[in-house]
Amino acid sequence: MPPGELWTIGELAGRAGVTVKTVRFYSDRGLLPAAHRSAGGHRRYGPGALDRLHTIRSLRAFGLGVAEIARVLREDGGGPDALPVGGALEAAVAGRLREVGSRLAALRWQQTALRLLHDCDPAERAERLRLLGAVCATQAPPGTAAMARFWRRWLPPRMPAPVAARVVDIAVPQPPDDPTPEQALAFARLHAFVSAECTGGGSGQPAAHRAGSGHRPAVLYQGLEEAYDLAAPHLRAGRAPHAGEALDCFVAAYAASLRVADTGAFRRGLHGVLAADPRIDRYWDLVALVTGPDRPTPGAAHAWLTAALA
């Protein structure tokens, strides 16, 4: 391009409506390469640099960092006339969507928490402040790490890692992006419940978790997941506990984990064991408030099946 058709850094800045400092900043970082250098070493830019500068400013307006913009522009050849259309731009936009979605969810949680604090009786405010303050962060929606730790302590130590991970995935509710006041308060109470110091020791574990019980935990929990799925439609329909496929699957999980046959005597003995097992009904009651009535909890399914066994 002949030198007469090139712009100085000031001319480019004026055409783009930005400061010279801005153009120099992007040039120094390799986002806006000069087309030519004058005899005195001054940068000169062609008309394509104006399009490139507009592109950079647009990407910055959406919150992309300089390093991300560099990757986007580099993928498209790095020339001043190249416009970003490839996978790097798609990945950058997807990443920003996730970040913005997370921030919006965090803001919705804060908004709901503030309403709960504003609208409650003054006598409740101190407790709610403590509960909600423990889960409402400024930059992210509430996390579930405390609940995952609770379940990893609750499960038998010899549980295979993939099965334990599946149990945790099923048992730990995800916080809704736009919670109702009831959901937000239930989630905060759930977090407080699992974060409280456990004083029950080993005696608080179900019989199937105890050393020497003979159970194969992986077999048991894989079978229980299927039984809970079969019981869920009955729970949603409000049906009373009864015999059927769900109960047979439930009993079969325990029988298979012990390598014994499903007999009447086994069922009578199993009912006695399950009736005596410790329960964490408070946990499941709070989970039900978080997830809603259309998603019966494993705890509710277990209680329904135990009642059906009786």
Rank of each mutant, 00 (worst) to 15 (best):
Val167Leu: 08
Ala243Asp: 15
Pro141Lys: 09
Ala140Phe: 06
Trp151Thr: 02
Trp154His: 09
His242Asn: 07
Ala126Trp: 04
Gly133Lys: 09
Trp154Cys: 01
Ala192Leu: 02
Gly201Val: 02
Leu155Val: 05
Ala218Leu: 06
Thr138Leu: 14
Pro179His: 07
Ala240Phe: 04
Val194Pro: 00
Tyr221Asn: 05
Ala252Trp: 08
Arg189Met: 10
Arg236His: 04
Gln222Ile: 00
Gln205Val: 06
Tyr254Leu: 12
Ala255Tyr: 11
Pro179Met: 04
Ala145Pro: 00
Ala171Thr: 01
Pro233Cys: 12
Val167Pro: 04
Pro206Glu: 05
Gln205Phe: 11
Ala240Leu: 13
His242Gly: 14
Leu185Thr: 06
Thr199Lys: 04
Asp248Pro: 07
Ala218Pro: 05
Ala232Ser: 15
Ala246Asp: 04
Ala184Cys: 15
Pro241His: 09
Pro241Ile: 05
Pro156Met: 01
Ala231Thr: 08
Pro157Leu: 12
Gly212Tyr: 13
Ala165Pro: 07
Val163Ile: 13
Tyr254Phe: 15
Ala246Ile: 04
Ala196Cys: 05
Val251Cys: 11
Gln183Phe: 14
Met147Ala: 15
Leu132Arg: 12
Ala255Glu: 03
Glu225Arg: 15
Ala211Pro: 11
Ala237Trp: 08
Ala240Gly: 09
Pro217Glu: 10
Pro156Leu: 03
Gly201Pro: 05
Gln139Pro: 00
Pro217Arg: 00
Ile170Asn: 11
Ala184Gln: 05
Ala227Trp: 01
Ser203Pro: 03
Met159His: 03
Ala208Ile: 01
Asp229Phe: 06
Val251Thr: 07
Leu190Val: 05
Ala140Pro: 00
Val167Thr: 07
Gln174Lys: 11
Gly202Cys: 04
Phe250Ser: 11
Asp248Cys: 08
Arg189Asn: 07
Val251Phe: 02
Pro175Glu: 05
His209Cys: 14
His209Ser: 14
Val194Ser: 02
Leu230Phe: 08
Arg149Gly: 02
Gly223Met: 04
Glu226Arg: 15
Cys136Tyr: 00
Pro179Asp: 08
Phe250Ala: 12
Thr199Ile: 09
Asp177Thr: 09
Pro157Ile: 08
Gln222His: 12
Val163Ser: 06
Ala218Arg: 01
Gly200Pro: 00
Ala145Val: 00
His215Glu: 01
Ala184Trp: 02
Arg158Pro: 02
Ser195Pro: 08
Val168Glu: 05
Ala137Cys: 02
His234Ala: 15
His234Gln: 10
His191Arg: 07
Glu245Gly: 13
Val251Tyr: 02
Phe150Tyr: 15
Ala237Arg: 14
Pro156Asp: 03
Leu235Ala: 10
Thr199Asn: 03
Pro142Val: 01
Gln222Ser: 12
Arg128Trp: 06
Gly204Phe: 03
Leu190Asp: 06
Thr138Trp: 13
His215Tyr: 15
Ala243His: 13
Ile170Ala: 15
His191Val: 11
Gln174Ile: 01
Ala232Asp: 08
Glu226Pro: 00
